[in-house]
Design a protein around this nucleic acid. Structure first.
Length: 150
DNA sequence: GCCAACGTTGGC
DNA sequence: GCCAACGTTGGC
């Protein structure tokens, strides 16, 4: 079992949206490091923190789990999509994704500010300077500690 | 809206 | 391969 964190702007796709649809392809990731985590390292059943970015109170809002093997991101092939990438070849897709399934929404948001103040979480990738990665691993010790804050 | 940090592109 | 220019992310 591995643990992850994935970011989404709630104006685009929030944990309430995921709760409604239950399962969602995590499309639109256009960063190689993030793609590599999804393509090479994620396993069905891995647990994932849902993080809201670019909003009033950025932070962790709930849990989902990986619900598929990696497959080609279909939005890369759709000229009408914001995520269209003409350089992604259907025979050798550049962008891969996994489906995620809703598990739970926390009763409260564990805010970025709160995470930053917590000495136990020192060194957590999310909190490193200038971090912009939207898909990243979470250490089990950090995962367990964050759950204890909810 | 601002801007620091970072990733990508493309000329050379 | 270097690096300047540019585009994006995302907190504040």
């Amino acid at each position: 079992m591995q643990y992850w964190l994935m970011k989404s702007e709630p104006d685009v796709f929030s944990i309430d949206d995921l709760k409604r649809v239950k399962v969602e392809p995590w499309d639109g990731i256009r960063n190689y490091q993030a793609r590599n985590f999804m393509r090479d390292d994620m396993r069905t059943g891995d647990q994932v923190f849902f993080y809201h970015s670019n909003c009033d109170v950025p932070g962790i809002v709930g849990i989902m789990k990986v619900a598929s093997k990696p497959y080609a991101d279909p939005t890369a092939f759709d000229p009408k999509s914001n995520y269209f990438d003409p350089k992604s070849d259907p025979d050798n897709p550049r962008w891969m994704l996994v489906d995620v399934r809703y598990v739970k929404k926390f009763k409260r948001t564990i805010s970025l500010a709160e995470l930053r103040e917590d000495p136990v979480l020192e060194g957590m990738r999310l909190l490193m300077r200038g971090n912009r990665l939207s898909v990243m691993p979470v250490e089990k010790a950090h995962w367990d500690h964050i759950l204890s804050l909810v």
